[in-house]
Protein backbone atom coordinates (compact mmCIF):
# COMPACT_ATOMS: atom_id res chain seq x y z
CA UNK A 1 0.00 0.00 0.00
CA UNK A 2 1.15 3.48 -0.85
CA UNK A 3 -0.25 6.74 0.37
CA UNK A 4 -1.19 9.57 -1.94
CA UNK A 5 -2.06 13.10 -0.97
CA UNK A 6 -4.97 14.54 -2.93
CA UNK A 7 -4.82 18.33 -3.12
CA UNK A 8 -8.06 20.01 -4.15
CA UNK A 9 -7.86 23.26 -6.06
CA UNK A 10 -10.66 25.65 -6.96
CA UNK A 11 -10.98 29.06 -8.51
CA UNK A 12 -14.21 29.78 -6.66
CA UNK A 13 -14.67 29.18 -2.95
CA UNK A 14 -16.39 25.77 -2.53
CA UNK A 15 -16.95 26.32 1.19
CA UNK A 16 -18.87 29.60 0.85
CA UNK A 17 -22.38 28.51 -0.08
CA UNK A 18 -22.54 24.83 -0.91
CA UNK A 19 -26.05 23.55 -1.65
CA UNK A 20 -27.35 20.56 0.34
CA UNK A 21 -27.02 18.52 -2.86
CA UNK A 22 -23.37 19.50 -3.23
CA UNK A 23 -22.69 18.65 0.41
CA UNK A 24 -24.37 15.30 -0.03
CA UNK A 25 -22.42 14.62 -3.22
CA UNK A 26 -19.08 15.40 -1.53
CA UNK A 27 -19.94 13.27 1.47
CA UNK A 28 -21.02 10.40 -0.79
CA UNK A 29 -17.74 10.62 -2.66
CA UNK A 30 -15.61 10.53 0.47
CA UNK A 31 -17.67 7.71 1.98
CA UNK A 32 -17.26 5.78 -1.24
CA UNK A 33 -13.46 6.00 -0.80
CA UNK A 34 -13.84 4.92 2.81
CA UNK A 35 -16.11 2.08 1.72
CA UNK A 36 -13.29 0.75 -0.42
CA UNK A 37 -11.05 0.93 2.65
CA UNK A 38 -8.80 3.36 0.78
CA UNK A 39 -9.17 6.38 3.02
CA UNK A 40 -5.98 6.95 5.04
CA UNK A 41 -6.81 10.41 6.37
CA UNK A 42 -9.94 12.37 5.65
CA UNK A 43 -7.88 15.54 5.75
CA UNK A 44 -9.41 18.99 6.11
CA UNK A 45 -11.08 21.79 4.26
CA UNK A 46 -8.96 24.93 3.99
CA UNK A 47 -10.31 28.45 4.33
CA UNK A 48 -10.18 30.76 1.35
CA UNK A 49 -10.58 33.96 3.34
CA UNK A 50 -8.65 33.40 6.54
CA UNK A 51 -5.38 33.12 4.70
CA UNK A 52 -2.01 34.83 4.73
CA UNK A 53 1.28 34.22 2.99
CA UNK A 54 4.54 35.02 4.77
CA UNK A 55 7.48 36.01 2.61
CA UNK A 56 11.11 37.01 3.22
CA UNK A 57 11.76 40.57 4.31
CA UNK A 58 8.91 40.75 6.80
CA UNK A 59 6.30 40.71 4.03
CA UNK A 60 2.87 39.29 4.80
CA UNK A 61 0.26 39.21 2.04
CA UNK A 62 -3.42 38.41 2.07
CA UNK A 63 -4.46 34.98 0.95
CA UNK A 64 -2.70 32.50 -1.25
CA UNK A 65 -4.48 33.72 -4.34
CA UNK A 66 -3.09 37.15 -5.05
CA UNK A 67 -0.80 35.76 -7.69
CA UNK A 68 -2.48 32.54 -8.71
CA UNK A 69 -6.01 31.96 -10.00
CA UNK A 70 -6.43 28.70 -8.16
CA UNK A 71 -6.15 28.14 -4.46
CA UNK A 72 -6.03 24.98 -2.40
CA UNK A 73 -9.44 24.33 -0.86
CA UNK A 74 -8.66 21.08 0.94
CA UNK A 75 -6.69 17.88 1.08
CA UNK A 76 -6.97 14.25 2.06
CA UNK A 77 -4.83 11.11 1.93
CA UNK A 78 -5.80 7.86 0.22
CA UNK A 79 -4.05 4.49 0.48
CA UNK A 80 -3.90 2.45 -2.73
CA UNK A 81 -1.58 -0.03 -4.41
CA UNK A 82 -0.87 2.20 -7.40
CA UNK A 83 -1.10 5.84 -8.43
CA UNK A 84 -3.63 4.75 -11.10
CA UNK A 85 -6.08 3.75 -8.37
CA UNK A 86 -5.60 7.13 -6.72
CA UNK A 87 -6.27 8.78 -10.08
CA UNK A 88 -9.49 6.77 -10.49
CA UNK A 89 -10.64 7.96 -7.07
CA UNK A 90 -9.81 11.59 -7.87
CA UNK A 91 -11.58 11.42 -11.21
CA UNK A 92 -14.88 10.85 -9.45
CA UNK A 93 -14.56 13.82 -7.14
CA UNK A 94 -17.43 16.26 -7.72
CA UNK A 95 -14.92 19.15 -7.62
CA UNK A 96 -14.20 18.43 -11.30
CA UNK A 97 -17.77 19.39 -12.20
CA UNK A 98 -17.31 22.81 -10.64
CA UNK A 99 -14.16 23.64 -12.58
CA UNK A 100 -11.77 22.58 -9.83
CA UNK A 101 -8.96 20.08 -10.09
CA UNK A 102 -7.14 17.49 -7.99
CA UNK A 103 -3.39 17.15 -7.70
CA UNK A 104 -2.07 13.73 -6.66
CA UNK A 105 1.27 13.36 -4.91
CA UNK A 106 2.80 10.16 -3.55
CA UNK A 107 3.77 10.44 0.12
CA UNK A 108 7.44 9.47 0.30
CA UNK A 109 8.70 7.14 2.99
CA UNK A 110 11.73 8.31 5.03
CA UNK A 111 14.23 6.21 3.05
CA UNK A 112 12.50 6.51 -0.30
CA UNK A 113 14.25 8.28 -3.19
CA UNK A 114 12.12 10.52 -5.32
Amino acid sequence: MKEFLLIFRNSTNPHANPSPEQMQERMNWMASVAAQNKLADKGNRLSATQAKTVKPGNVVTDGPYTEIKEFISGYMIVKTETIEEAIAIAQENPILKDGGNVEIRAVLQPNEKN
Binding site: Q24, M27, N28, M30, A31, A34, A35, Q36, N37, L39, K42
Partner: peptide
Protein backbone atom coordinates in the same frame (compact mmCIF):
# COMPACT_ATOMS: atom_id res chain seq x y z
CA UNK B 1 -27.16 6.96 3.92
CA UNK B 2 -25.60 10.04 5.50
CA UNK B 3 -25.24 8.25 8.84
CA UNK B 4 -23.54 5.34 7.07
CA UNK B 5 -21.29 7.84 5.29
CA UNK B 6 -20.20 9.28 8.65
CA UNK B 7 -19.84 5.85 10.16
CA UNK B 8 -17.47 4.73 7.41
CA UNK B 9 -15.22 7.70 8.03
CA UNK B 10 -14.69 6.75 11.68
CA UNK B 11 -14.94 2.98 11.47
CA UNK B 12 -14.48 1.04 8.23
CA UNK B 13 -15.67 -2.52 8.06
CA UNK B 14 -16.69 -4.57 5.02
CA UNK B 15 -20.20 -5.01 6.36
CA UNK B 16 -20.61 -1.26 6.92
CA UNK B 17 -19.35 -0.62 3.39
CA UNK B 18 -21.90 -3.10 2.03
CA UNK B 19 -24.76 -1.72 4.10
CA UNK B 20 -23.85 1.78 3.03
CA UNK B 21 -24.05 0.68 -0.61
Amino acid sequence: LSLYNELLLIDYSPITALNRT
